[in-house]
Write a protein that binds this DNA or RNA. Structure first.
Lengths: 215, 215
DNA sequence: GCGGGCATCCACCAATCGGGGGATGCCCGA
DNA sequence: TCGGGCATCCCCCGATTGGTGGATGCCCGC
């Protein structure tokens, strides 16, 4: 961990790798950071798979990671990087979408920060330095999402299974048949699901569960 | 890379305006084009509204236009630009999404080209020159998508709205009340949604729509 | 040993949903 | 001009759901 002392200009530059399948976005980020003395782009990648190689060879301090990419998405790339080393590099997710599902999956995989692509330059640069110095960096809207999540109770395995089948369009009877339980039992499980998710019916329950990455 | 020093290109540089709400993307595009002698960025905008002003003052040859932006989306901006002048500037849509609906709306509004943000530099530059010289420019994937549109029917605006409310757990009657239409009409819309998505009921429809990003 | 969470089961009833018809008016493209 | 897509409305009916109020057995922690 670096020391945040009073001699700022002398500090080492933060070495980063940029991972995004959009050339335009990569160029934008690289252009922005090369104009900054405090941050150096030491590598780039266009997919999760490339990212793993690039990080292995470049050993950056921070990785800027997109989530939705062909050939190895961001989530699994984050998981694998974390499996190699629990603290290095720090991983900043930079994505277009802010769905609860994505946020949850990314942070669960081991991301240290979560920003949206409409973030301003200053926010981005600040976030990179925050991560390099050991702090987390999360967009304001994302925090509110996390707060909602913590307040929400988790579904049991059985409840989640029932909900998954309901999301496939099966009737309660069909679900019961599939799981070898009675229709009445299915209804009971769903009642519990509705109560836990605050959903009035199965359609809303499906949506909420999908948003939260519970399915 | 190719067109630059090609034959008849003694021509003037192509003057373009970049419209995108993501600062990162704007920078990437501007950085790319300022490195090219044959293309000059004469303006930029972060919303549809700004785009209208910027085009009026800069009179560019080509506009690079994002679709989903706050404060005036790309579709209406394209329509208004076309209402002013049917041929100038040429409009190249550059977006992250390749949904059938977006493509149709953009082209119907009067766009001359449609590229995705994962396009390579050379494709982008070529497309700008194509447009400046009066040719259309459409990404290969977009064409393929237009071809398979029968396989994946899009929801109408009304249908999508009804489904959204159903996903919030509203009953058909409540949806009708909210949209100021009859409950019977709501049922009809949902019937169409089920048919289009191949869903047996609303729960499945919600899940499928969520998966496909139709909501 | 006793509570408590979990999974399982049951019955009853009102409300809702899905499926089958058919109907109108509008607008746009062939 | 004639479809065809879209949005709107109406009917009826059986199947399904959601709400309520129970019940049993199991396992775990206190």
């Amino acid at each position: 961990m670096l020391i945040d002392d009073a001699a700022p200009a002398a500090a080492e530059t933060v070495r980063i790798v940029v991972v995004d399948d959009h050339p335009v976005v990569r160029d934008g980020l690289i252009g922005m950071f090369t104009a900054m003395s405090s941050i150096t782009v030491v590598g780039q990648a266009a997919s999760g798979r490339e990212a793993l190689e690039m990080v292995a060879t470049c050993d950056p301090d921070v990785v800027l990671m997109d989530l939705r990419m062909p050939d190895g998405d961001g989530f699994s790339a984050i998981s694998r990087l974390r499996a190699r080393n629990r603290t290095r590099p720090r991983i900043l997710v930079l994505t277009t979408y802010d769905t609860e599902r994505d946020v949850h999956r990314a942070l669960a995989a081991g991301a240290d920060g979560f920003l949206l692509k409409d973030a301003r330059h200053t926010e981005l640069i600040r976030a990179v330095h925050d991560l390099a110095e050991g702090r987390a960096a999360v967009a304001p809207g994302v925090l509110a999402m996390l707060a909602r999540r913590d307040a929400a109770p988790a579904l049991t395995e059985r409840e989640a299974n029932v909900l998954r089948l309901a999301a496939d369009g099966l009737t309660n009877r069909a679900i019961g048949h599939r799981l070898a339980i009675g229709e009445a039992t299915v209804k009971t499980h769903l009642q519990h699901v509705y109560a836990k998710l605050g959903a009035p019916d199965r359609a809303a329950a499906v949506r909420i569960a999908w948003e939260r990455g519970l399915v």
